[in-house]
Nucleic acid binder design. Sequence first.
DNA 1: ACCTGAACACCGTTCAAGT
DNA 2: ACCTGAACACCGTTCAAGT
Lengths: 233, 233
Amino acid sequence: MVTRAEPGSQPRLPLSRERVLRAAIKVADASGIESLTMRRLAEELGAEAMSLYYYVASKEDLLDGIADAVVAEINDAVSAIDVPSAGPSWKTAVRQRVLSAREVLLRHRWAPRVLETRTRTSLAVLLYYDGLLRLMRDGGFSYDLIHHALHALGSRALGFSQEMFDPSGGASDEQTAAALDGMAGQIPHLVGMLMEVAHDDPSSTLGWCDDQTEFEFGLDLILDGLDTMRTTA
Amino acid sequence: MVTRAEPGSQPRLPLSRERVLRAAIKVADASGIESLTMRRLAEELGAEAMSLYYYVASKEDLLDGIADAVVAEINDAVSAIDVPSAGPSWKTAVRQRVLSAREVLLRHRWAPRVLETRTRTSLAVLLYYDGLLRLMRDGGFSYDLIHHALHALGSRALGFSQEMFDPSGGASDEQTAAALDGMAGQIPHLVGMLMEVAHDDPSSTLGWCDDQTEFEFGLDLILDGLDTMRTTA
DNA sequence: ACCTGAACACCGTTCAAGT
DNA sequence: ACCTGAACACCGTTCAAGT
């Protein structure tokens, strides 16, 4: 082992929690969350896996850390938004915040899954919800209705929703169509719907459905319902 | 190694995919999904881990299998429901199906997480959605609106929703109250809301919120919104 | 056809040791 | 204070071998 630096080797930056978390996000963004292992992360940093434990208590702590960092990124994005929120304009204010959060999550596809599996309550998440809450208070909501509303929105408030099935499932439209055709006897209504919807929507080049459109449809459905309750309660 | 059965040892049942999946569900129900390993499952069956690979192709295939089994259990439960679904009664029909699905999931707490992580499209899930679709067709929905509706419902159609944060987070109410108090400066609206809501609801002995009530609130909000669209479209 | 033992390539993590 | 090598206890899985 040579103590002196190899000729041409850069003097490595010292590690820090900040650098570890940044590198972890980089790995997850580039290669997916399943490829984020302590050894792989250490390699990315030019260090040994064991060195990471000086900055994170465990892998769970690492995941808590990168989840927090993503929500902090969301909080940064939404704090730049400055639109009126009094009375009826609460809705566009909330809508804009949620869609901003979604934009951040689209840059970190692994984030929803990691967020869902956190057990620790994250201060960053609480701060985000506190911001939404303020807007709804401006809109004239009671605390009680806001409480229901936050539960009704669930993860949608942070910009993502659970799609239980993707008809295309990663396969091509042709493969999907063929597979569905074979099952038509068992799932006649579903096949009927997908035939019609796929035909009607020439812009669905990414597959059967446009996720962004569907996300906004669901979001607006909930926000509109809440708006009605706000005024009738 | 003795070839003859030990005195008192029961002649072990032969393995089968059915038995493997059943045992896997039993382990997950009793000890949580994280304790479901191939070795632990084999032990439960009185066999070796390697023997399981004769019935499942991989652990992913095992998870696909138990997810399918749970949805099959849901399909059994909802197929016993026989209520009218024509016109405006579509809503109560769908509502009842969703709440039945939820009851099944409450017996398998690990199921939502496993369902979310499946990549393969499950026939059982398609059958479930096809059933919902039929009810909405009876209600007079267009295929196009049903398509939006299924996306808007997302996992809620199958009886569960993503709660992004649990204010209690497993801790006692006293601990939660103390922790929130310390953060009151940073999240004033959230603290204000939780103080009021917890105070107002003497029945919330399980913590700050009654999940079943909140689930139904969110579900009804969406169903009511869809019902309006059904009649105005 | 059905089941298994030994072994492999990975994990996260502990611990004592280096600078 | 910061980093590491060797080692441990666990994974899922391959493969050749047993009945």
